[in-house]
Every structure is written in structure tokens, then in C-alpha cells.
Amino acid sequence: MEILDIIKPENQVFCKTKLMTDTTLSYCPGCGHGTAHNLTMEVIDEMGIVEDTIGVAPVGCSVLAYDFMNIDMTQAAHGRAPAVATGIARTWPEKYVFTYQGDGDLAAIGTAETIHACNRGENIVIIFINNGIYGMTGGQMAPTTLEGMHTSTSPYGRDIENMGSPLKITELIANLPGVYYVTRQSVHTHKHVRKAKKAIRNAFENTRLKKGLSFVEIVSNCNSGWKMTPNESNIWMEEHMFPYFPLGDIKVNGKLK
């Protein structure tokens, strides 16, 4: 059997996500962003809600998310995505509104907007990519950078006494009454990808049911920023990131686990 005999629609197991554009991803090879984009778009496609979905892109590596996600999107100022999403969700209560933010955006410069959108229980989804570093600006320390981790602004390692501890903003948020669903996932293996997709689906279903805010953290790698090969970075993530940022549901149906 020739290879061309196999490449037929009926034999196709995977195909390109319908709601992704044909634009080549600007992310580094090995980065988790592409998978997180895919999962979000697959969920929106499978739920058949593209006509009613508005995404909010952040500042950071995913600032150009709208180049890849084939949906209506508004790009927000650094850290302000939850406020921008609030403005949209409040004036379009029937729409599905989500933000897609990194750790610098969500947990440093945008902390106030994040906490208060969560506390008000805005009926939105926040997808939070946590890779413990500022990727786009070239590998500076993030609020979630681990203790001792080397970055260009903590070249001798993050010193807790001087620079504070890595911020567990997800746990913080889970304690707010307006927040209905909080989970921490990853996308570095097939198993984790499937779980993460389920979590994102759950989050958007909550929006449909007007349950309030759903928060999906995805702990991800940044092989470029961490100065590792993609594979090394995934192993490092399992060994170092997961113990500090443990995977799993933190709050389900408005109840802390």
C-alpha cells in the first residue's frame, strides 16, 4: 500500500482545528501556547458558539492570539483583559466572553483587574497560562517564577527575601465567592491535553449556565526562556513547577475541593 492510498478523508484521525487560522504560529517550537489555543478553539467549535464568542487577547507572548484564533477578538492593554472582558460581558450578557492571559499579565500588572473581575463573579472564562517567566520580553522574572529560578532579571536565582515568593494567584482567586470553577491543568502530554480540554469545556459550559467566573490555569513550559530543549523543559516542569503549582481541580461548582 502506498502512502497516498492512506491519506484519505475516511482515514483521517486528526485534522486542523477549524477555528484556527492558517497563520503560522509565532510561538517557539515546544511551547504550550499552540496547544492551549487549539483546545480553546476546539471547545468553542464543538459547542457551536462561535457566533456568540468574543475573546480578549492580552499583552505577552499571546498578544497576537487573534492572528491564530479565527473568532472575534479584542486585544487589551497589559493586565487589563479582565476589565475589558467585564465591559463586554456586562453589555452582552448572552455572549461567551473569555480572556487568555499569561502570568505577568494576570498575576503582576493586572492583579487588581483579575481579583475584582473574579470577586464580582463576572460571567466569563479566564484561561491563564503560567510558565513562570516573561516570554515575550525575553525571559524576565514573573510573579510565578520559582525560588532560585534564573531569569534575566534574577540572574542569580529568585531570592525570596529580596523578590518575594512565587504568587499562587489561582489559590487566592479560588477563595473568592464570585468564582465558580477553578482548576489547574497542563498540556505537555496527551493525557494532560485531554484533561485540559475537558476543563476548558467545563468552563464554557458554566458561562452558558451563567454560573459566574471560571478560571482555568494551564501550567506550561517556556523552553526558550528557561534555556532548555522542549523535552528538558517538560521534565523540569514536572519536577519543579508541579510540586509548587499542583495540578487538579481547586474549586468545582462553587465549592473548594
Partner: peptide, 11 residues
């Protein structure tokens, strides 16, 4: 800051 960004979003 949040208020003007809510304006940005709705606008």
C-alpha cells in the same frame, strides 16, 4: 484604570 478598560471592552 479598570473603568476605562471596561469602556474599551464595551466600545
Amino acid at each position: 484604570v479598570a473603568a476605562i478598560n471596561m469602556v474599551y471592552g464595551a466600545a
